[in-house]
């Protein structure tokens, strides 16, 4: 059946419900593109024959192939675009450096797109309101209190807070830290906010 490969690509993304990024299915995309090429060649041949010999009975199958071509195009583009949206979400979650296991799932072009997106976002944030700009990937939740109780989930090493004191973030240790300093670490999974 035509288009089956293309739909399989979409299904693959759909199965990853919570916006996770599966490995780039280069093979699948290539197969769809090959199928499109074959369909297109058959169509070209049939169109020529229909024109030269006047065989009107070929027209329905030409139309069918054309619909399949359109559907394949749509599915591939949707697959790629949806992946971009997921990659974009990762920039907001992890900051500008992605963990290695996620980068492993991205194609070279996706890495390139991500780099460009990062750059655009950075220059946008720098341009807000004059000198230093504003990091809008911070302050994701409304602040409730200045300091929060956090627990370390993994060893992170030394960490400096605003007034110059350096603390050691060791696994399972608990600290009372300024919220605006640890927001990113919480999102990266280094710290955990302990609700009291």
């Amino acid at each position: 059946m035509f288009c089956e490969k293309a739909v399989e690509l979409i299904r693959e993304l759909h199965r990853m419900t919570d916006g996770q990024l599966p490995a780039f299915n280069e093979d699948g995309v290539r197969q769809v593109l090959q199928e499109m090429e074959a369909l297109y060649e058959q169509n070209q041949a049939d169109v020529n024959e229909a024109k030269s010999v006047g065989r009107a009975d070929l027209i329905p199958s030409i139309k069918l192939r054309h619909c399949c071509l359109l559907r394949n195009q749509r599915c591939v583009v949707a697959y790629l675009y949806d992946r971009l949206l997921r990659i974009r979400a990762l920039r907001w979650e992890y900051g500008s450096v992605l963990p290695a296991n996620i980068r492993f799932h991205m194609s070279a072009e996706e890495v390139q797109w991500f780099g460009q997106y990062k750059k655009s976002l950075a220059s946008f944030m720098r341009s807000i309101g004059g000198e230093e700009g504003l990091d809008i990937t911070q302050d994701m939740k409304p602040p409730k209190s200045l300091y929060i109780q956090v627990r370390c989930l993994k060893d992170h090493g030394e960490f400096e807070i605003d007034d110059g004191t350096v603390i050691l973030l060791k696994k399972n240790s608990q600290h009372f830290l300024p919220r605006w300093k640890c927001e990113q670490l919480i999102r990266q999974g280094v710290l955990e906010h302990v609700m009291s």
Binding site: L33, E37, L80, S120, S123
Partner: peptide
Amino acid sequence: AFAKEYYANTETYLRAVALKRMP
């Protein structure tokens, strides 16, 4: 500026990966 860059970036990407290899 951001919107323009985003558009260009996404379009370039789609073209490079799939569209230019289509019929």
